[in-house]
């Protein structure tokens, strides 16, 4: 495998075409999932069957890159066999690691496939040294994907207190709730992000025009009303507009996307191993643009040159066309 320059660039692939796009655009590592509820982007038309996964891994490995397979949802009682199969398949296909969250699945993988690298998914929301050491000591995880709730200074302190690699989110959609423990979408639709791998499922999403405004609903609940010309967003509950104290507002989070390109040297100095790009649901065009931009920036930083200013094309790909540092900077909380 090619050693990553500066920071390992971990990129999303929702489809086989996105995987090759990410590899061609300079991803060090690509993460993807099988076509079922075993991963957290279980959307119609996305993900890989075993043959596509085998081809994808071959494509990446031939170019010195890695493939991680996300098996990062929580099996419902009585359905664990599908998750165990997914772990077995990932091992048989030669994945470089599996990304796991459920205690039972972690236990299974650690016992059945001790030689297969295990990464702790952000869905496990391990945000402190005790929690991370819990997973390290019991299940031998090699890497933790940190929840998007920590400031850079907290990331640095954490890295110093644990003995596994850290991967942090650098770009993409920003969930404001602690991952893996948010039931807002299932409360409204009945389908669970934790177990079904789908938040705000498309079959529950509807748009309706009311006068000049556009109403976006999830199930029976109205998530937002957009005036003409206002930036729209997908009706995810944590991105909705709600009325508190008589005033409608983006109570949880404005429609913004995370963009950490400007603070990559800080993340590197904090001791982070890898950067994660969110967006397996977003397709080839997004993957090509974001990965290429990050590749350029990382190469420049690796060569000791200053990073270029944030590109407009990247900004256009953030949610609502607006960007944030999220929790990395104080004040977000």
């Amino acid at each position: 495998m090619n050693p990553p320059r500066y920071l390992e660039l971990v990129c999303p692939a929702g489809t086989p075409a996105a995987l090759s796009t990410a590899v061609d655009a300079g991803a060090d590592t690509v993460y993807c999932g099988f076509r079922d509820a075993t991963n957290a982007r279980n959307y119609p038309g996305l993900n890989f069957d075993p043959i596509e996964m085998r081809e994808g891994i071959a494509y990446a490995h031939a170019r010195g890159r890695r493939v991680l397979i996300a098996v990062n949802t929580f099996p419902r009682a009585g359905e664990t066999a599908l998750w165990h199969d997914a772990v077995d398949r990932a091992a048989a296909l030669g994945a470089d690691a599996v990304i796991l969250a459920d205690l039972g699945v972690l236990d299974y993988a650690a016992r059945r496939h001790p030689g297969l690298r295990r990464h702790l998914s952000v869905q496990a929301a391990a945000a402190n040294p005790l929690a991370i050491n819990f997973y390290h000591r019991r299940f031998g995880i090699s890497r933790v994907v940190l929840p998007r709730v920590l400031a850079v200074s907290e990331v640095a302190a954490l890295v110093g207190a644990i003995s596994v690699e850290t991967e942090v989110f650098a770009f993409g959609s920003l969930g404001t709730m602690v991952e893996g423990r948010c039931y807002l979408s299932s409360y409204i639709t009945g389908r669970s992000p934790s177990c079904d791998g789908v938040c705000a499922p498309a079959e529950h999403v509807s748009y309706r025009e009311e006068g000049d405004d556009l109403l976006a609903s999830l199930g029976d609940a109205v998530m937002n009303r957009f005036a003409p010309g206002e930036p729209r967003s997908y009706p995810t509950p944590c991105k909705g507009r709600f009325v508190t104290l008589g005033t409608p507002s983006y109570l949880f989070e404005e429609p913004v996307g995370l963009n950490a390109t400007a603070i990559l040297p800080e993340l590197k100095a904090a001791g982070v191993t890898a950067l994660k790009i969110e967006g397996r649901q977003r397709g080839r065009a997004y993957v090509a643009e974001v990965v290429r931009t990050f590749r350029t920036i990382l190469d420049q930083l690796a060569d000791g040159r200053p990073a270029p200013p944030v590109s407009a094309s990247l900004l256009a790909l953030t949610e609502g066309g607006q960007q944030t540092f999220g929790a990395y900077r104080p004040g977000w909380r």
């Binding site: 038309g45 959609s173 748009y207 977003r282």
Partner: peptide, 30 residues
């Protein structure tokens, strides 16, 4: 991409949202 489909005003989607998302994602496979 699928999200841009919803963010932008370039396209207007009515009815069975899941069918269009499924179609979009499937077309993106190759």
């Amino acid at each position: 991409d699928g999200d841009t489909l919803f963010f932008s005003r370039a396209l207007t989607l009515t009815g069975d949202t899941a069918a269009v998302v499924g179609l979009r994602n499937t077309l993106d496979r190759e």
